[in-house]
């Protein structure tokens, strides 16, 4: 059965790129344009991987990660954050909110899949 990834980013081009890459890798994809939207769309779905941007309007990525991690269905789900900030503050905030890891922008499909390989068997 195809695994499902939740991709959250307010940038359509970024979302398209990540979604396309994951679909090529055999995932089925659910897209959300901000944290709030993602929570709504993820509700009741079985999700194997979350990839979220951090800087987003309405609800940012850190809040989303915290919200997701608080749900029983997402207790062990790998959550990766997309970040351009390699500074530790953002990463640390994401980690303490419950993120599994991060992908530093800019990235290409190869790198994206490599990082996913670190959190998903």
């Amino acid at each position: 059965m195809a695994r499902t990834a939740l991709i959250v980013d307010d940038s359509i081009s970024m979302r398209q790129m990540v979604a396309f890459t994951l679909k090529e890798a055999g995932f089925s994809v659910i897209e959300g344009e901000n944290g709030q939207d993602a929570l709504t769309r993820a509700d009741g779905q079985k999700i194997d991987l979350v990839i979220t941007d951090l800087n987003m309007p309405v609800m940012d990525g850190i809040t989303l990660i915290r919200e997701l991690r608080g749900k029983p269905a997402f207790k062990f789900t790998p959550i990766l954050m997309l970040t351009t900030e390699s500074q530790d503050t953002k990463k640390q905030a994401g980690k303490s909110a419950g993120a599994s890891g991060w992908i530093v922008k800019p990235f290409d499909p190869g790198k994206l899949l490599a990082v996913i390989g670190k959190v998903l068997p």
Partner: peptide, 10 residues
């Protein structure tokens, strides 16, 4: 394990 990570992958 609670941050979605599996040591075996490491």
């Amino acid at each position: 394990l609670l941050s979605g990570l599996d040591p075996i992958l490491v």
